[in-house]
Design a protein around this nucleic acid. Structure first.
Lengths: 218, 218
DNA sequence: CTATTTAGATACTGATCGGTATAAATGTTG
DNA sequence: CAACATTTATACCGATCAGTATCTAAATAG
């Protein structure tokens, strides 16, 4: 059955996409209702906005979900257990760097750059989804390192959290550098160097696991 | 000669310090005049605020200058030509990480976390000092790499910008991780790994290979 | 003392914030 | 057609934004 009532004269999907770009660029607070209304589908009225999206906060949540389901997928390879761990990390770094430097949308990562304000109770709720997403990516990198350790590709004496922090801090920093208009080639070249930390750690791994020494620690 | 007129009953220096903490934590736009008035010296009135500081923007500029002259000095070792380049970079990373994780003030770096909004003409002016400071730190790291290359401590075939981007991206990312309450020990341990990129570059005469293993695509 | 200088207190400004009440316009359903 | 459902346009809400006008309080200068 078709939709009853007067049909809306803007494309809701397209409007969410435009709203995501606005939030991505300016952040949650700095994006005003006036900006959103003016930018969505070529201009809609306040009542249309609230009828379609509920509230500014609800629209933001929807935009975050949209972002996580699309652009943020570049790091999803971290969870692909069919990929060799090192390749999974490298792929995540390279794909994310490429995405963040793309001119087709705001520079940097929306999940990272939405950190801004922290303390106010409602803002905390808004930012929570972003914080959790960052924690998930972090956990994905840690999982890759641990997988490599279990496979003997990294020494099992390694501090997985510390090793993962190297890559995660770098990845978070890419958002800042992308905002500062660092060319993608430069970041990609930096990834070459960064991955050497993996290789040099791997070169100290015993080719055949020696559980005797590993089990000493606790 | 002593000051004429009625003396103000709050400590201006202390007030700037408190304002800096507020801007540091919430960012420029998200810090309201109401917050500032309530937080400065235990509460001052609007006219007192404007008489003492001129405007919100002028106070922010003053806070940025204060920040650059104090907390941001942790990376000033990058410009100390008496320090071996690698030690200068390591010291900058470790001191900055320690500072950013300190509980005595807001987590992260004010210069990095003030990026937020970009486009509006006046906001651009406010953010400009931060952008320039980031560029200066970046240039300092590049200078250290170049100094090491000239001293034969790094191969002269190295791409200094790319090498510096490794450390700078990491450094920028520390702000995000500090906001996410990553313990300082973990970041410090990550710096150990990160510095291996310097050592392995130093040990190789030939330029590092491009695209170490994957992702020739696109 | 008076004059001058500076800061504080109260109250207010116009603009913008996110959000809504009301009712007309436009569609489907029977 | 009439009844219903939904979006639209206009106008508006109280709250808060950054910033001020006005007057009084408190200090120094002569």
């Amino acid at each position: 059955m078709a939709q009853m009532g007067r049909p809306r004269n803007f494309d809701r999907e397209h409007a969410v996409e435009q709203a995501m770009h606005l939030f991505w660029q300016h952040g949650y607070d700095a994006t005003s209702l006036a900006q959103l209304k003016a930018g969505l589908g070529g201009g809609i009225s306040a009542p249309s906005f609230y009828a379609a999206f509920g509230s500014k906060e609800a629209l933001f949540d929807e935009c975050v979900q949209r972002y996580l389901a699309t652009y943020a997928q570049v790091t999803e390879c971290l969870w692909d257990e069919n990929l060799p761990p090192r390749l999974a990390v490298e792929t995540a770094l390279r794909q994310s760097a490429r995405m963040q430097c793309d001119n087709a949308h705001p520079k940097g990562c929306m999940v990272t750059l939405g950190v801004m304000s922290a303390p106010s109770p409602e803002h905390a709720r808004v930012v929570d989804a972003l914080t959790q997403s960052r924690a998930r990516t972090r956990a994905g990198i840690v999982a890759c390192v641990q997988r490599a350790m279990q496979a003997g590709q990294l020494p099992d004496t390694l501090d997985a959290e510390a090793m993962a922090t190297v890559f995660d801090c770098f990845l978070q920093g890419v958002s800042i550098r992308a905002r500062d208009n660092t060319p993608h080639e430069q970041i990609d070249a930096a990834i070459n160097h960064l991955l050497l930390t993996w290789d040099i750690a791997a070169s100290t791994a015993a080719p055949i696991r020696q559980n005797t020494s590993a089990l000493q620690k606790q």
